[in-house]
Design a protein around this nucleic acid. Structure first.
Lengths: 178, 178
DNA sequence: ATTGAAGCGGACACTTTGTCCGTTTGCAAC
DNA sequence: GTTGCAAACGGACAAAGTGTCCGCTTCAAT
């Protein structure tokens, strides 16, 4: 990759980060302008809006992967999953787009045998829980992400009232039937 | 309402019903064209796309309301809720937009004290379950709809594998902790 | 220093949304 | 039946965005 290319890529991401925090939709033309690059350059780096957004949240996703590992070492499986979900929710509250990004990132290629990093990390959490007998054995990472989609639809003003309870319900549902 | 107005409204809905079944996004201009009305007429009847979609699914929503009542009479609360969710899922599988519509319809006015029909119907289901001691007492209709959002994100090809299990998980989460 | 491939930018074509306004039409009063 | 007019109509048009194309520039390998 040429040096100017990677410089531009960074500029675009930085611009997008700024603009996505602001109100309203993320306009691609505005991103290009803010980044000081042409439309063409933007589209060369990120073919679709989703690609750009996914790249934007790559950091958060890496963090979620690391967090999964860390929690797994330090807590019992159920507590680990609970905390991991809380972390996911915390991101979702502030960065409204993470869930999309997580969903996209974890199953970029629907049929890919090799799961992505995030899929693996979350999978490890679930496997540990299943092994310990505290979680259902038939749920997979995508199940959990799908169920987490509700986070993207909770309105900011109802967040504090609802989300803790909803996470509780979700977790209860995932527990081993036993 | 003038007779031509209601005729046009019906034509627009019919056109939208046809076009939404087809592939791709629902283009408002295409709806107007198909309905044989001008853009202006379309916008007069439905200010936003959401409004149009909500109207489109009004029938399904009424059906869901009726179904809630019927199930409540004929089954135990838990079974009633289970079946109701299955019905919701069935709609969601075929009519990809219902969840949005349900979400919109049930909480059109976020702060409205009077819940909408759907909110009431689902609320009755939950109340009955709580009274019987089989459901958590702290969940409300919106909680359930929020948790159902995953339905809108399940891909058609994974539907049969995942949805039954996910509904099971959801229901398990809603059961009384007892 | 040369050179050509990679990268650039921004004009432009295209798509879709939403508004405006002159014209038409339903219908109620006479 | 005629008339009056508010309501409704429709389609041109403005606005907003997206995605493409292509002549020019820049990097970096030689």
């Amino acid at each position: 990759m040429r040096s100017d290319a990677s410089r531009n890529r960074a500029a675009i991401l930085e611009a997008a980060r700024v603009l996505i925090a602001g109100p309203g939709e993320l306009k691609l033309s505005a991103v290009a302008k803010q980044a000081g690059v042409g439309q063409g350059t933007l589209y060369r780096h990120f073919t679709t809006r989703d690609e750009l957004v996914a790249a934007l949240y790559a950091e958060e996703i890496d963090e979620l992967v690391a967090e999964a590992r860390r929690l797994l070492e330090q807590h019992e499986p159920l507590a680990a999953l609970e905390r991991w979900l809380a972390r996911l929710a915390a991101y979702a509250q502030v960065k409204r787009g993470v869930i999309d990004a997580v969903d996209a990132s974890a199953w970029a290629e629907i049929s890919a045998e090799t799961h992505t990093k995030l899929g693996q990390a979350l999978g490890a959490l679930l496997t540990a829980g299943a092994a310990a007998g505290v979680l259902r054995e038939d749920v997979d990472p995508r199940d959990v992400i799908l169920l987490s989609w509700f986070l993207a639809h909770v309105k900011p003003e109802e967040w504090d009232d609802r989300v803790p309870r909803l996470l509780e319900v979700l977790l209860a549902g995932l527990r081993s039937a036993r």
